[in-house]
């Protein structure tokens, strides 16, 4: 918990300090959102058939994506990565802390710190100027909030797993770009998941990544009814637990190797 608070503070302060960078980041996200909205608008304008989502829903989905992009577990915790690459992780073993738990807390902090400074202005802007709709009602709003918390947990679990994976891929950023690719597609960051072809949908539904963006968004829009919230959040949490377990197991293996080989 102390680690969490410390990281949150540090991240928050860093974001505050680089105000110009934060503004630039915001402008970039807005630009991206506008371009994507125009692309979708053009596609919808030239199509007559029924689609799984209406254009206003897609627009809202796009803006929510732009706002919460920072929540995606794109890369391992840079500090932890450094710790592992330098071999200093061996010293961490001396301390009486649960390493994976610590890294999880750090990841949660990293994912939540930008929310206040980056997401909120984005949402306000998108809602008031760019045609993003509000939640479909009080129940969808509640479901969204609950699901968003599960998203943070899921994202942190993935980040921690990525960090642990650094043990096994010391040379390569390659694995991480691979993850970014899958993540972007399967979470809904590139196009809303319902618009992907039918044949890929079963895979999308099973994988954990939809819990990062798609699940909370569709609850927000009422595209998934509030009754389905339990199942949706259940999917997020189940994967969170699985990923945490996987991370712990991998870490234990990696550490045993570190101890045996002496780094």
């Amino acid at each position: 918990m102390r680690a969490y608070v410390a990281i949150f503070e540090a991240r928050f302060r860093a974001l505050l300090q680089y105000r110009a960078a934060a503004l630039a980041g915001l402008a970039t996200q807005v630009f991206w959102g506008l371009v994507r909205v125009m692309i979708f608008t053009a596609f919808y304008a030239s199509s007559t058939g029924a689609q799984p989502m209406t254009l206003p829903e897609v627009i809202t989905y796009v803006w929510l994506t732009q706002a919460l992009l920072m929540m995606l577990p794109w890369r391992p915790d840079p500090d932890v990565e450094q710790l592992i690459r330098s071999g200093n992780v061996a010293y961490e073993l001396v301390r009486p802390v649960d390493l994976h738990g610590l890294w999880l807390a750090r990841a949660v902090a990293q994912r939540t710190a930008p929310v206040l400074l980056r997401c909120l202005p984005m949402v306000v802007l998108a809602y008031s100027v760019f045609g993003m709709a509000g939640p479909a009602g009080p129940l969808p709003a509640l479901a969204f909030a609950v699901s968003l918390c599960a998203t943070v947990a899921l994202s942190a679990a993935l980040t921690a797993l990525l960090s642990v994976s650094t043990f096994f891929t010391l040379t390569g950023r390659g694995l991480h770009s691979l993850v970014i690719g899958v993540l972007n597609l399967m979470s809904g960051a590139i196009i809303p998941l319902p618009l992907l072809p039918e044949w890929i949908q079963p895979l999308v539904r099973v994988l954990p990544f939809r819990g990062l963006l798609d699940t909370p968004f569709r609850l927000y829009m009422g595209h998934l009814p509030p009754e389905a919230a339990l199942q949706a959040v259940g999917h997020q949490l189940l994967w969170t637990v699985l990923l945490v377990l996987a991370g712990r197991w991998l870490l234990a293996r990696a550490l045993r190797r570190v101890v045996v080989q002496g780094g």
């Binding site: 040379t171 390569g172 950023r173 390659g174 694995l175 991480h176 770009s177 691979l178 970014i180 690719g181 899958v182 972007n184 597609l185 590139i190």
Partner: peptide, 16 residues
Amino acid sequence: GSVVMGALGNLMVTGV
């Protein structure tokens, strides 16, 4: 190895 992995990753990201 790092270059090959980087190129593959780049291919993956843009391919997606």
